[in-house]
């Protein structure tokens, strides 16, 4: 092989190897079809973006809830066993046992709709119709004292429903509120009085051990 052909050959290899990295787009993948986007893009936001057409009443929601939800969440949303409590808890957030329900804690009603539609009922996700999801959401809002018994939740009136705890959320402020955790020289010697044991895990005895099943219910 002549010297010039060898050089040309190397140049070709280099061009081949470099080409994908130089191109702005790879062209990999394909365009998603509108039907495909519609099948997966079911998410809903607080401003109502993503809500499907439809409606559901508190009354219909009660029936559906009793059939589809009550075995885990309790007939009144009180939660069976350790399954999530959905109703009540107002005024409990500063107590020793805060109860974080849709009415007491959740900031947005859209979260309820979105979550039921994507993941409920547990073990049979995506089995409810959009009207079913509107109705169950309406019922849960009603049980939390937020809408009347004759209320019908629709795509149009959805974003008018406000949850009482919305304003109690604020963005992460640790780098300001916990500024004192940034220290130049943490103490190394005689930093505190002698330490005394004031609590022991073994007194509570809830740690699983081999062959021993612990129930604390």
């Amino acid at each position: 092989m002549s010297k010039s052909r060898k050089v040309a050959g190397l140049a070709l290899v280099a061009a081949l190897l470099a080409a994908p990295a130089l191109a702005g787009k790879t062209g990999l993948g394909r365009e998603a079809l509108p039907e495909e986007v519609a099948a997966w893009d079911i998410d809903v936001r607080p401003d109502g973006a993503g809500l499907p057409p439809g409606k559901g009443s508190v009354r219909d929601g009660e029936q559906l809830y009793l059939q589809q939800c009550a075995s885990c969440h309790g007939e009144f949303g009180e939660g069976a066993g350790r399954w999530p409590v959905l109703v009540g808890g107002q005024g409990s957030l500063k107590s020793e046992g805060p109860e974080k329900t849709i009415g007491s804690f959740w900031p947005y009603a859209s979260t309820t709709f979105d979550y039921i539609k994507r993941a409920m009922p547990y073990g049979n996700a995506r089995s409810l119709s959009d009207d079913d999801v509107y109705a169950i959401t309406a019922f849960l809002l009603n049980q939390n004292g937020l809408v009347k018994d004759d209320f019908i939740l629709t795509k149009e009136n959805f974003s008018k429903v406000k949850l009482p705890n919305e304003q109690a959320f604020y963005d992460d402020d640790r780098e300001k509120a916990e500024r004192h955790f940034w220290q130049k020289d943490p103490c190394m010697k005689n930093c505190k009085p002698d330490a005394k044991v004031i609590g022991r895990a073994r007194m509570i005895d809830v740690t699983p051990e081999d062959g021993k099943s612990i129930k604390v219910e």
Partner: peptide
């Protein structure tokens, strides 16, 4: 919202 937000002593929550 319901999970992975940090409820503080004053009843407010960091998100």
């Amino acid at each position: 919202t319901s999970k992975y937000t940090d409820l503080l002593a004053d009843g407010r929550s960091r998100r």
